[in-house]
Simulated assay, not measured.
Amino acid sequence: MELILKNVKKKDYPVLKSLAKSLGFEIEEKIDKPYNPEFVKEILEAEQSIKEGKGIRIKLEDLWK
């Protein structure tokens, strides 16, 4: 049988982990990362460059030319 716990609070995790160990359960931690870290870095750098005035403005009507 498999049991999945979701949205466990950080303060409750050690208690659940020690309980599972004492009962002889196998513990498998899986942390989902929804985005590629390199992609996130590129987006944050782009936002920073726009704040610094390094971006290019294009009028909406010129976008499809």
Rank of each mutant, 00 (worst) to 15 (best):
I4Q: 10
L19F: 15
E38K: 14
L16Q: 03
E42Q: 10
L16W: 04
E28T: 14
K51G: 04
K6V: 10
L3R: 08
G24D: 08
K30T: 05
R57V: 03
V15Y: 09
K59I: 00
E28N: 15
K51R: 15
G55Y: 07
D32H: 11
L44S: 08
I50W: 03
P34F: 13
E2L: 13
A46Y: 04
I43A: 10
V40N: 05
K11V: 07
K54V: 03
D12S: 10
D62Q: 05
E38A: 12
K33A: 06
I56D: 05
A20Y: 01
K65Y: 03
G55C: 04
A20T: 02
V40A: 09
E26V: 09
I31K: 11
I56T: 14
K41Q: 13
I58C: 01
V8P: 00
E47I: 11
N36V: 06
K33V: 10
N36K: 11
V40I: 15
I43F: 07
N7I: 01
I50L: 15
E28D: 13
E38M: 09
R57W: 04
E47M: 11
F39G: 03
L19D: 05
R57A: 04
W64G: 00
K65C: 02
E28I: 14
S22M: 06
I31L: 11
Y35I: 07
L60R: 07
K10N: 11
I27G: 06
D12A: 09
K21P: 00
K65S: 09
I58R: 04
L16M: 08
L19R: 09
E52L: 13
D12Q: 14
L23E: 12
I27V: 15
E61T: 04
K65D: 07
M1E: 07
S49D: 14
V15L: 15
L19P: 00
L16D: 01
K33L: 10
E28M: 12
K6L: 10
K6S: 12
V8M: 12
P14Q: 12
I58V: 15
K33R: 14
D32E: 15
P37R: 04
S18H: 06
K59F: 05
I31G: 01
E2P: 05
K41G: 02
R57G: 02
Y13V: 04
K10P: 00
I56G: 01
L23Y: 13
A20Q: 04
L60E: 05
G53T: 06
W64Q: 05
G55A: 14
E38N: 12
G24I: 03
D62C: 00
A46L: 12
E52G: 01
E52P: 01
K33C: 05
E45H: 06
L16P: 00
K6F: 06
K9E: 08
G55K: 03
D32A: 10
A20K: 00
K17Y: 08
P37Q: 06
